[in-house]
């Protein structure tokens, strides 16, 4: 990212919580990771029919559920197969990103 652009996005983030996860070298990029979830969980995670919404939910709760799917303590049809492929940092970034989207 060019310096100019990063500065601009940092300002933007104040107004739009979820985008704040975009920056931060080395950090997991919550916004980029979350896009992969939209086809099932709806645009920005606002829900897709029978598949639950994630937008605006408590970040700790989302993170606990993802870790639970990953370690097998929470049953499910598909999340137990998807969740193990995300690192702890990515789970936190995803949870934080969805938590900040207006439901």
């Amino acid at each position: 990212m060019s310096g100019h652009h990063r500065l601009a996005i940092a300002t933007l983030a104040v107004a739009l919580g979820p985008l704040s996860a975009l920056a931060g070298p080395g950090d997991a990029d919550g916004a980029a990771l979350a896009v992969a979830c939209f086809s099932c969980h709806g645009p920005e995670g606002r829900g897709g029919g029978e598949i639950p919404a994630l937008a605006g939910r408590d970040a700790g709760e989302i993170a606990r559920q993802l870790s639970g799917y990953a370690d097998g303590s929470i049953p499910g049809t598909i999340m137990p197969r998807l969740a193990p492929s995300y690192t702890g940092a990515e789970v936190t970034a995803l949870a934080d990103w969805f938590a900040e989207v207006a439901p």
Binding site: S39, C40, G48, G49, I51, I78
Partner: peptide, 10 residues
């Protein structure tokens, strides 16, 4: 059911 939701959502 999830398959149907996925299709309609996407």
């Amino acid at each position: 059911r999830y398959a149907n939701s996925w299709f309609d959502t996407l």
